[in-house]
Amino acid sequence: MSALLELVREDLRAFAGYASARRSGSNGSIWLNANESAWRNPADGGLGVNRYPEPQPEALRSRLASLYGVRAEQVLVGRGSDEAIDLLVRALCRPGQDAVVIAPPVFGMYAVSARLQGAPLVDVPLRDGGNGFEADLDAIASAAIAHGAKLVFICSPANPTGQSIAAGDLRDLARRLAGRALVVVDEAYGEYSDQPSLARDIDAQPNLAVLRTLSKAHALAAARIGCLLADASLVQVLRNCQAPYPLPSPCVQLALAGLSEPALALTRQHVQTVRGERERLRAELAACPGVRRVYPSQGNYLLVRFEDASLAFARLLAAGVVVRDMRASPQLGDALRISIGKAEENDAVLSALRTGRAAA
């Protein structure tokens, strides 16, 4: 057995999961094996939703594999990144025993999934320095070893703090934890970053996995499609732990259309627009009254500290602008996270903070 599969819970290594009708591999023209309706719903619109979908649609897996530079068998498609996070925690961590390491302040679903599984959660806080927040990778590795962690979640670009971590440093972390823990790099905002993806390093470093999503740069948040890129043996284990039919057929068709070459060209244009607006907004926010600090960001958002975050939040809301209140997060008691919108939306943010009113 590989060192990677030894990280999986022993009772799940040979777990076959639910043998759904669509996993049988059977071919035919008359489908009577899944207790489906033979008639289409009047609202079907030609989608054929009276039939169960493929558990892991091959066309979508292949398209995502091509997009991210891996093989199709290294792709697990699911309901956003959230499902992959949950599957990883459930498949690798025994309740009360196998820990999960995170670096707060960070995306909250890592901690939620760990708590639901009863997995001990180990915090290695980010350090707030002159160049922004930084992850202490040495401390993360030491904590993972000391606490017997099976999973280390690293968000890069980090949500909500915005920093990216050099690919070489993440590879070094994975090598240090080989045979001990799986290092999961969440690249949900990777399209906006200067750092290369770690996906192509999975073959050389099997205890490295990458999370990607179509919810951000690809503008498919409501379709709820994300994926885990990992060693094929781990993908197979997680497939056996996944719900039988995780991906609705209409969402798969949306995703395939959204990953066509014309759609990808438009996505790249929008990413460049966001990057330009991000730097403009960062510079102009820094000059707004009551703003203490605007952090550099590699994502499609900015983390901003205020002299009075409550007042800033209220002024924005009064102008119809909804931002993310980060004041309940560790180290962020005076901070708001502002997503990068269209130019006119960003102008409304600036107007509200400058005058307390929406832009005319």
Rank of each mutant, 00 (worst) to 15 (best):
A343V: 04
V271T: 02
A141P: 00
R175Q: 07
G179W: 10
L173V: 04
R315M: 14
R127E: 14
A139H: 05
V112P: 04
G356E: 12
D128K: 08
Y18E: 13
V8G: 13
G168Y: 01
N41P: 12
F133Q: 13
L12S: 01
S249E: 09
E191N: 06
L4P: 05
A352F: 00
T213N: 04
S66E: 15
E134G: 13
Y110H: 11
I85Q: 04
E277S: 00
A91C: 06
L229F: 12
C288F: 05
S2Y: 03
I340A: 13
A72R: 15
L353N: 09
G290W: 07
A283Y: 02
E187N: 10
A222Q: 11
V100P: 15
Y52G: 07
R224F: 03
N35P: 00
M326R: 03
L264C: 01
G226K: 05
T273M: 10
E6G: 02
G226D: 14
L264R: 08
L64N: 02
L214G: 02
R23M: 14
A84F: 02
S81M: 09
G276R: 07
N240H: 06
L311P: 00
R224M: 11
P42T: 12
F313T: 10
R176V: 07
V8D: 01
R224N: 15
G290V: 11
V321N: 12
P244S: 06
I145R: 09
S26E: 09
A174V: 06
Q272S: 09
A99T: 01
M109V: 00
N346C: 11
D194C: 08
Q236G: 03
V252K: 00
V235T: 02
N33R: 08
Q298N: 01
A167Y: 04
G299M: 00
P104N: 05
G290A: 12
L116M: 11
S142L: 10
V122L: 07
V101C: 00
I30K: 13
L220N: 08
G132Y: 07
L92F: 14
R94Q: 15
L87W: 08
R175K: 15
R61E: 14
P206W: 03
A181Y: 09
V323K: 10
F133T: 00
A360W: 01
P160G: 06
R200A: 14
R90G: 11
L137R: 12
G130Y: 13
L247E: 02
A174W: 11
D231A: 13
G48K: 10
N159W: 06
A114N: 01
R90Q: 12
G276H: 10
G179D: 11
G118F: 06
K216P: 00
Q331V: 01
A14H: 07
D128V: 02
C241D: 09
A204M: 10
F15H: 15
D172N: 15
L211P: 15
A219L: 05
A314T: 06
M1P: 03
L198E: 14
D347C: 03
